[in-house]
Design a protein around this nucleic acid. Structure first.
Length: 299
DNA sequence: TAATCGTGGCA
DNA sequence: TTGCCAAGATT
């Protein structure tokens, strides 16, 4: 077989335009700057889980200024982490980031581990975050499959408007097959495909006119067919336990002393749901019950 | 596998 | 206004 007759791997067609686009259009985000370091990268990845960049930015800056190293955070109470988390949402992430910092201090001498398996073993670190930290902080070669990359691959390569609901083995194989050989290029590719999904190949209204691979996008070449099958399950919020948990925790975040039960009772009318939400927060470790019906963030 | 877990901006 | 969506992890 000769080079001229063999079919080029998809990555040889997509790499260059996507990475060149990234070189020119990448946002200057604080966790991408060299001074962020592995800890900055890890903090950003926790905060960015299901949370938009613009909401993360100010909290990230305050967090790193207050706790510049994992050991600094580990020296605090978990409640302070929950308080500093503010309104980012999913406050269990704050608890897990605090626990991860403690594990880094205890098991890794205070340094964010480089090894993917050791990253994966940290609280709150799943497959995506382990790969992202190893890739972005340490320049390693790992497939990084977040919601942006999955959407870009679904469109550009597979030819569908949206990826499957849950990540499939086929998607992982594809991500692996598209990964550049050398680690530095692989890390750049990961960041570039994420950025393309975040800025151009967006979920609702992709800006195909600005896309560096529009001419070879399988979805466009197929006529941009609409998504088949049922719409994604809506995440109703009003009236749910989640909303009640959020209101309860907001009271405790604002208070710097233990709060009496009566003050928590004021946030929701239904006592059954209120109690269930509070119990859930306690069992999650987000709220600490004290004697005499008092509550506070965990110490 | 599917449900759960916050919050707020935008179409 | 309502529903969709946002750099997932855990159980």
């Amino acid at each position: 077989m000769t080079a001229t007759t063999s079919t080029p791997a998809p990555r040889t067609v997509l790499h260059t335009p996507v990475i060149e686009w990234f070189e020119e259009h990448a946002r200057d985000l604080p966790w991408r700057r060299p001074e962020a370091g592995p800890w900055g990268v890890m903090v950003s990845e926790f905060m960015l889980q299901q949370t938009p960049v613009n909401r993360v930015l100010p909290v990230y800056e305050q967090w790193l200024a207050r706790w510049p190293r994992p050991a600094d955070l580990a020296a605090e109470t978990p409640g302070e982490a929950v308080r500093a988390w503010g309104r980012l949402g999913y406050p269990r992430r704050a608890l897990r980031l605090h626990a991860a910092a403690s594990a880094i201090k205890e098991r890794h001498g205070g340094d964010v581990p480089r090894d993917h398996a050791k990253l994966l073993a940290l609280p709150g670190v799943g497959e995506y975050t382990a790969s992202a930290v190893a890739s972005f902080a340490y320049g390693q070669r790992h497939p990084v499959l977040d919601t942006n990359v999955r959407r870009v691959f679904a469109r550009a390569v597979t030819g569908t408007q949206y990826p499957p609901t849950a990540t499939t083995a086929a998607e992982r194989h594809l991500a692996r097959a598209l990964l550049p050989e050398d680690p530095q290029s692989a890390a750049r590719w990961a960041a570039a495909t994420m950025e393309l999904g975040a800025l151009i190949c967006t979920a609702r209204s992709p800006d195909c006119g600005s896309c560096p691979v529009a001419e070879q996008c399988a979805w466009r070449l197929a006529g941009s067919p609409a998504h088949e099958g049922p719409a994604r399950r809506g995440q109703t919020y009003a009236g749910t336990d989640r909303q009640v948990r959020g209101k309860l925790l907001a009271v405790l975040r604002e208070a710097h002393d233990p709060v009496p039960q009566s003050q928590l009772d004021a946030v929701w009318h239904d006592p059954v749901q209120r109690a269930r939400a509070l119990d859930g927060l306690v069992s999650d470790g987000l709220v600490e019950p004290l004697a005499g019906g008092m509550y506070r963030l965990p110490h």
